[in-house]
C-alpha cells in the first residue's frame, strides 16, 4: 500500500509517526503524581503531597500552546504579554539590526570584492572582529548607548554583519571575468556595471550570506533579550523560568524554532528567485 505513495508522502507519514511516538514516550516518561489518598503516612509527613515541579507532559504543553495561540496579542502589564507581542518585539529588533547590517555590509562587501587593496586593508579587522561573540559587545554597548533596546539592536547588527560582508565580497570577487568584459565592451559605467552585471551575478552568494545572517541573528536575539530584559521572546523564556512555569518555557522554545524556520524559508524563497544556472 505504501509503495504507491510518492516519496514526499511517505516521508510525511514517517515524520508524523516519529512525532507521535516521541510525544508518547515523553508523556509516558513523566511520573504521575500520586493522589493524596494513596500516600503512606511517611510520604505525607515528608511533603510528598505537595505539587512537585517537574517537566510537564506534552499534553500540558499542547494545552498551553492552544491557550496562548488563541489569544496571542493580549497585554496585561509588563510581565504578562501575549506570545505574539513578545515575538513581535524580537522580530522587530532582529529586522532592524539586520537591515542596518545589510546597509553597511553589502556596499562594503562590494568595495572589498572589487578592490584588492580594500580587501587587504579591511581583512585584518574583519578577521579579528568576526570571531567575537556578539554578546561580548553587550556591556560596552550598554555603557556607550545607554539604552537596552538600542543595545540589543546593536548586538544583532554586529552578529549579522559578517556573513553578509564576507559573502558579498566573495560573490563580487568571483564574478566571471567574461561578464565583466561584456559590460566593458558595452561601455557601461561603474554604477551600471555594478547593478546590471555584478549584482545579479553575485546575488546568489550574497543572498546565501543574508540567509546565514538572519539565522545567526535569530539565535542571538534570544540570548540578548535574556540579558536586557523587558520584552521579547528571549525575555519571555527567562521570565517563565523564573516563574518555574516549564510548560511555558517549552512552548516558547518551540515558538522560537517555528519563527526561525519561517525566517529561514523566507530567505530560501529569495534565494530561489535570484538563482541562475550557468
Amino acid at each position: 500500500m505504501l509503495d504507491n505513495l510518492s516519496i514526499n508522502k511517505r516521508a510525511a507519514i514517517l515524520s508524523i509517526v516519529m512525532l507521535v511516538v516521541g510525544l508518547l514516550i515523553w508523556e509516558a516518561a513523566i511520573p504521575a503524581q500520586k493522589a493524596v489518598g494513596e500516600l503512606t503516612e511517611y510520604e505525607r509527613l515528608t511533603g510528598g503531597g505537595a505539587q512537585k515541579a517537574g517537566v510537564p507532559p506534552p499534553s500540558q504543553v499542547i494545552a498551553k500552546a492552544w491557550e496562548e495561540l488563541s489569544n496571542p496579542f493580549y497585554d496585561a502589564g509588563p510581565n504578562d504579554k501575549g506570545i505574539g507581542i513578545q515575538i513581535g518585539y524580537s522580530i522587530y529588533r532582529v529586522l532592524t539590526g539586520y537591515f542596518l547590517a545589510a546597509l553597511v555590509a553589502i556596499p562594503l562587501g562590494f568595495l572589498i570584492g572589487m578592490s584588492q587593496i580594500a580587501y587587504k586593508a579591511f581583512n585584518p579587522f574583519i578577521q579579528v572582529l568576526r570571531p567575537i561573540s556578539p554578546l561580548a559587545w553587550m556591556p560596552l554597548a550598554l555603557f556607550i548607548i545607554q539604552d537596552s533596546e538600542a543595545s540589543a539592536i546593536f548586538v544583532i547588527f554586529v552578529c549579522s554583519i559578517w556573513p553578509m560582508l564576507l559573502n558579498t565580497a566573495f560573490g563580487v570577487a568571483g564574478v566571471r571575468k567574461d561578464w565583466v568584459n561584456v559590460a566593458r565592451t558595452h561601455e557601461l559605467g561603474p554604477l551600471k556595471t555594478a547593478f546590471t552585471v555584478i549584482l545579479p551575478a553575485a546575488a546568489p552568494t550574497i543572498v546565501t550570506g543574508m540567509r546565514i545572517s538572519i539565522g545567526i541573528a535569530w539565535l542571538v536575539i534570544v540570548a540578548a533579550e535574556m540579558l536586557v530584559g523587558g520584552t521579547g521572546i528571549g525575555y519571555y523564556v527567562w521570565n517563565e523560568w523564573n516563574n518555574l512555569d516549564l510548560t511555558s518555557v517549552i512552548f516558547s522554545i518551540l515558538m522560537i524554532g517555528v519563527v526561525g524556520m519561517l525566517l529561514d524559508s523566507a530567505f530560501g524563497v529569495l534565494q530561489r528567485a535570484v538563482a541562475y544556472a550557468e
Binding site: 561578464w179 568584459n181 561601455e187 546590471t196 552585471v197 545579479p200 546575488a203
Partner: peptide, 28 residues
C-alpha cells in the same frame, strides 16, 4: 579602451545567464 564601436563575440558566448536570450540581446 573598450567601445561600443567594437563589438565582441567571445568564444564562451559570454551571455549573462540570469537573462533570457531576448534580454541578453536587448541588454546590448
Amino acid at each position: 579602451g573598450p567601445s561600443l564601436d567594437r563589438g565582441v563575440v567571445f568564444q564562451n558566448y559570454s551571455l549573462l545567464p540570469w537573462l533570457s536570450a531576448l534580454k541578453n540581446v536587448t541588454f546590448g
